Amino acid sequence: MNLISTSGNGSFKVLEGHQEIFKLNYTNWFLGKAEAFLDRQKIEIKPKGLFQTKSEIRKHGKNIGTIGMSWNGKMHIQYTNEEGKLLKFTLERTGFWQSDFCLKNEQDEVLMELKASTNWKKLKLDYTIVFKYEDTQVDNNELLVYVGYAMNLHVAITSAS
């Protein structure tokens, strides 16, 4: 799978081979509002406060979770899945100078790695997604919506400081 940047505002799409799984589009880049349609379900993500370090996840118009950054630079994603279980993940960079990320579950198991590949023509980063561990409680495509947004939020917060 690949996460491909489609715009300078952070919008991206996820492809499996040549088939598009979903797109996340920023409806208001300045305010950090984004939306994606996955299996005909609308997912909206928007900042909760003025400083934009925490965002809320809405699905079907209902708040189901949050994405935020902790003091140590790790992104925390938590949301309630379709079965009503609260899922928690941590997204972190895998190297100080690198643009790669890894996603871990609550048990500190690496679920996926996102390996950056720079496209100098676009001046944007694309990512190859490598799944390391299969969690049956997680819809990987839905989780990738949140992971992609969290990576963009991480870059925006760390480049502003």
Rank of each mutant, 00 (worst) to 15 (best):
P47F: 07
V14R: 09
G32W: 01
I4V: 14
L125G: 06
Y146C: 05
F12A: 02
E109M: 01
Y133E: 14
F37Q: 09
L153A: 15
T128D: 14
Q19I: 10
T27S: 14
F22T: 02
A34R: 02
F131Q: 05
E113F: 01
G17N: 05
K88T: 10
N119I: 08
E82T: 05
G68T: 03
G84I: 01
V138N: 06
S161T: 15
S117E: 09
N25W: 08
T128N: 13
M69D: 04
L31V: 07
S11M: 01
M1A: 15
K132E: 15
T80K: 13
N28Q: 02
K132D: 06
V147A: 10
M112T: 01
E113R: 11
N81E: 01
L91Q: 01
D39Q: 08
D139W: 07
S159Q: 15
K42Q: 08
A116D: 09
K48L: 14
K74G: 06
G148Q: 13
N25K: 13
N152R: 13
N63V: 15
K85H: 04
L50D: 07
G148V: 07
F89D: 00
P47K: 06
I67C: 09
L153Y: 06
H18P: 03
L31E: 12
L24Y: 05
L153R: 12
R40K: 15
E56P: 01
